[in-house]
Design a protein around this nucleic acid. Sequence first.
DNA 1: TCTTGCGCTTCTAATTCAGAAGCGCAAGAG
DNA 2: CTCTTGCGCTTCTGAATTAGAAGCGCAAGA
Lengths: 111, 111
Amino acid sequence: MGTTPRPGRPVRGSDTGRPVMAALDLLGRRWTLRVIWELHQGGAPVGFRDLQRRCDAMSSSVLSTRLAELREAGIAAPTDGATWHLTPLGDDLVTAMGPLLDWSHAWAERQ
Amino acid sequence: MGTTPRPGRPVRGSDTGRPVMAALDLLGRRWTLRVIWELHQGGAPVGFRDLQRRCDAMSSSVLSTRLAELREAGIAAPTDGATWHLTPLGDDLVTAMGPLLDWSHAWAERQ
DNA sequence: TCTTGCGCTTCTAATTCAGAAGCGCAAGAG
DNA sequence: CTCTTGCGCTTCTGAATTAGAAGCGCAAGA
C-alpha cells in the first residue's frame, strides 16, 4: 500500500511539505472526496458494505485502502470495529467542502 | 481519452447527475486540484511547460489531458493559443477551495 | 444446521499515470 | 540563411493504480 500524505512531510508531487500540497495529494485520489462526503451524509456511523453501496458500488479493495488512508490521516475512524465515522477533523473538512458544493451548483447552471 | 464529467449527466461513479457528484469526479482525478491551484497562483496566464514545472514536473501527457478536461468543463481556457488561464468559473472554484486551504493548516497542526 | 449478511482481503485484468523522446513551429544568434 | 533554443503538445512503453469478482472467518437468525 502507498503512503498516506501528511502535512510537514514530502508528498507525491511536492517535496516542500506545505500542508495544502499534502491535502491536495490525499484528496486527489480516486473516491477519497466521495467517501468523506458519504460518511458525512450518513450522519450515523456507516458500515463497510453500506458505504460501498452509497459510493455506487466502488471497488471494495479501493474502499479498504481509502479508509486506511483516512484513518492514518485522522479524518475517519472505526467506531466499534464494525462501522466508520468522521473524526471532528473530518467534519471540519466536510464543512470546508461546503463552498465547493455551492460552486458545483453554479457550475451546473452554467452548462 | 476519457469523458469529462459534467453536471446533469451521469458520471463515473454516479448516475444521478447531481452536480456535486460530477464535481467530485472531475476534481478527484490526479493533479486536477493542483493544476487549478497553480493556474491561480500564477495570476497571469501560464504556459504549458511553465505550468508543468510549477506542478513539480508532472507528466506532460497527463497535464495535456487535464487541461483538455478543464477546458471542456469551462474551468480553464487557452488565452491566445500559447498560454492558459482560469475562467471566471475557475476563479470561483479556487475561491471555493479557500476553506480547504484553511483546513489543511488545521490538519497540519494536529499531526 | 443452514442460510444470510457482515468487514475485509486477495487475486487478475483493465485503466490510468509516469517519464522519456520527439514533432512542428517560432524567435533569436551568428 | 543556418543553427540553436525553447515552446506547446503528442506519442510511445513500462509502472502504478483501480476495477471487479471471489472468497475467508465470523456472527446472528431460521
